[in-house]
Computed example of a mutant assay.
Amino acid sequence: MSLKFAAGDLTIHRIVEEEGRFLPANDMLPGLTPELLAENRAWMKAAGALDDSDTLILAFQSYIVKTPHHTILIDSCIGNHKPRPTRPTWNMKTDDRYLRGLASAGFSVDDIDYVMCTHLHVDHVGWNTRLENGRWVPTFPNARYVFDKAEFDYWTATNAKAEVPPFVDSVLPVVEAKRAELVGNDFAIGDHMRVLPTPGHTPGHVAFTFGRGKDDAVFAGDLMHSPIQALYPELSPKFDVDPAQAAKTRRGFLERYCDTDTLCCPAHFPSPSVGKVRRKGNGFVCETVS
């Protein structure tokens, strides 16, 4: 299983917290007909993206990008001690897999300069904070945490109507600790990192592009969850806030990177997760690299 990649002058590490069966394909992707699933079952299983019961296999992971100047963590996964009763494997988790993965890649929590969230869903913010003496404190004490302002505002308004636990325990404590930066689409880190707006999954969902003067790598978050969405970009999961906008964004993203050398790094594709976008018929494939 590949956990380390190179792109330009970047080194990219995958920190996998969990990988396995998630939801039945036809439940997660409402537009997936039995005929379409049958047509694509064989290659999906061969790619490790579907099991024998037609359940999608997803990875839940962070990426760490080492640039010549910074160490940047993208999407902080699920987290420990978080009350997540609707997801038993995430609920009040206490294992050390994530921190062991961090250590085996050669990093400690003190080494991270930036934590950047593509969006603020539960499985992308969990390790933003850890429990210390009954309080939620930033896990990465030296990091600035980068949140898209439109995304933050959306969840602030949503949380005002009914409490959103991941926002309360994994985002607001970072703001209270004065470690957060609410940014717009013009945010950049030196000449190595830029924001690419990718709305639809959530209103303020963004991707992050890395590379000096060109996109050597792009971190796509939940723009797509499974390889079948590259082949059929109009297949939107039930978690998309605006499925039509997400489908349009997805196709535009895939067109942008099709037949380039940009390394595409989605949050949830099964191992090895990353690849290069290539055209296939009216859709695309993400050809894996090792």
Rank of each mutant, 00 (worst) to 15 (best):
V164E: 15
L23P: 00
W136Y: 14
L223H: 03
V183F: 03
V65C: 10
F210D: 02
D216R: 08
I78E: 01
P88G: 03
L3M: 12
V241A: 12
V285K: 06
N80R: 13
L196C: 05
L235A: 04
V218E: 00
F22Q: 01
G184H: 04
T94E: 14
E35R: 15
G190D: 06
V285C: 08
R250F: 02
H225S: 12
T249K: 06
G283E: 03
L73S: 05
C286K: 08
G200R: 00
P270S: 12
N40W: 02
V206H: 06
S236R: 06
E255M: 08
R41G: 00
D27F: 13
L29Y: 05
L56E: 01
S104M: 11
V175I: 12
A247Q: 06
G20H: 07
Y98C: 01
T67F: 08
G106D: 01
G48T: 10
P237V: 08
A47F: 09
E35A: 15
D9F: 05
E18H: 14
L182T: 09
D9I: 09
P173R: 11
V125G: 08
R279L: 04
W155M: 09
F107Q: 01
V115I: 09
A42H: 08
N185A: 15
E35W: 11
A143P: 01
P243V: 00
T198H: 13
L99I: 14
R100E: 12
D51P: 08
W136V: 08
D216A: 14
N128L: 04
G101A: 09
C258L: 04
A247V: 03
P138K: 14
W43Y: 00
K178F: 10
K149E: 15
D54M: 10
Q245W: 02
F107R: 02
V289H: 07
E18F: 15
F60Q: 13
N128I: 05
V175A: 11
R135Y: 10
W155E: 12
G275C: 05
T260R: 07
A6W: 09
P243N: 04
D9H: 12
W43V: 04
F22A: 10
F167V: 00
P227W: 04
A207I: 04
K4I: 12
G31T: 07
D148Y: 09
G252V: 06
R194D: 03
A220H: 00
L23G: 00
R251H: 08
A180C: 05
F239I: 11
N142Y: 07
N80M: 08
S108V: 09
H69F: 15
M1F: 12
S170K: 01
V137L: 09
P138H: 11
I112Q: 10
P83E: 07
E176V: 06
C258T: 10
A49D: 03
Y257H: 05
G213S: 09
F152L: 13
E176R: 12
